[in-house]
Simulated assay, not measured.
Amino acid sequence: MDLLTGEPLALDLVNTRFHTPSSVDHDALATAEGLRAWLAKQAGQLTPPEISLGPADLAAVRDLRGHVERALEAVRQATPPPPEAIAALNQALRAVPAYPRLEVRGAVLRRGTARDGTPLDRLLAELAEAAVALLTDPDVGKVRGCEGPGCRLLFLPAHPRRRWCSPDLCGNRVRVARYYQRHK
């Protein structure tokens, strides 16, 4: 199954752990290749690290994903997020703070943002920053779970009637199942 992307970066991170149509658990961040593939799909939202990430780096990204997932679920349930999730996000942000930078593109000056630190620390800080943006967005209460059987993907609906992570995947399975039940 191909990864679904296109949601806010923090949701795409949480959605790297999903069920396949045959209800098998899958973790897109289980291997370095999986992480590289996910980072490539996020190229428009994320600065990819310049080096390959090893097993300890994968574990750090998965750990941050777990903290984002727990904080997001708490916010969706209107309960206080776990203190360790907030501490982990703040630690990732504190490790490599962003600072403004003047960039020159031809004869045009532009304001950019830079971070110093290891590639892993910069990646974790960008992911934590995306999580903070989502968790503090007034629309975070609109984040929904897919209604497809066994699907655990989350999405921020652009339309209030949206019910599935993807109309082509879960939506189609639900419609086919309903059709089958009516014509059984």
Rank of each mutant, 00 (worst) to 15 (best):
N15G: 09
R163Q: 13
S22Y: 11
A28C: 04
L120T: 06
H159W: 12
H26D: 11
E50W: 05
G171P: 01
L72G: 01
P149M: 00
K142R: 15
L4Q: 09
H183M: 07
D168V: 11
A78L: 12
P157N: 10
E126G: 07
L123I: 06
E50I: 02
P119R: 05
L102K: 09
I86A: 11
R162Q: 15
G106Q: 04
T136I: 00
R115P: 03
E126N: 11
E126M: 12
R94E: 15
W164G: 03
V68T: 11
A95V: 05
A158R: 15
G117E: 02
L93R: 13
G112L: 07
S166N: 11
V96Y: 00
D139A: 15
A131P: 09
Q91C: 01
R152C: 12
Q77L: 13
L3P: 00
C146H: 04
R65H: 10
R76D: 00
L134I: 08
E147M: 10
M1E: 08
A114D: 14
L156N: 11
A125N: 01
D168F: 08
M1W: 09
K41L: 15
E33K: 13
P83H: 07
R94H: 15
L53A: 06
H19N: 12
R111F: 05
C151D: 02
L169D: 14
S166R: 06
V68N: 07
A87V: 09
D168E: 14
A133H: 07
L53W: 07
S52T: 15
P82G: 07
I86H: 00
R101F: 06
D116N: 12
A43L: 10
A59E: 15
E126T: 04
A78T: 12
A130R: 08
G34T: 09
P119Y: 05
I86N: 00
I51Q: 13
C165K: 05
D12M: 08
L64C: 07
D2A: 13
A74P: 07
V68K: 09
P160N: 08
V104A: 10
D63V: 01
T5C: 06
M1I: 09
H19T: 12
I51M: 05
L153F: 09
V132N: 00
N90A: 10
D2M: 12
R182D: 01
V176A: 11
A59F: 03
D139T: 13
G148L: 03
L109N: 02
G117Y: 01
A71D: 06
L58S: 01
R122Q: 14
A43Q: 14
A78H: 14
L89A: 11
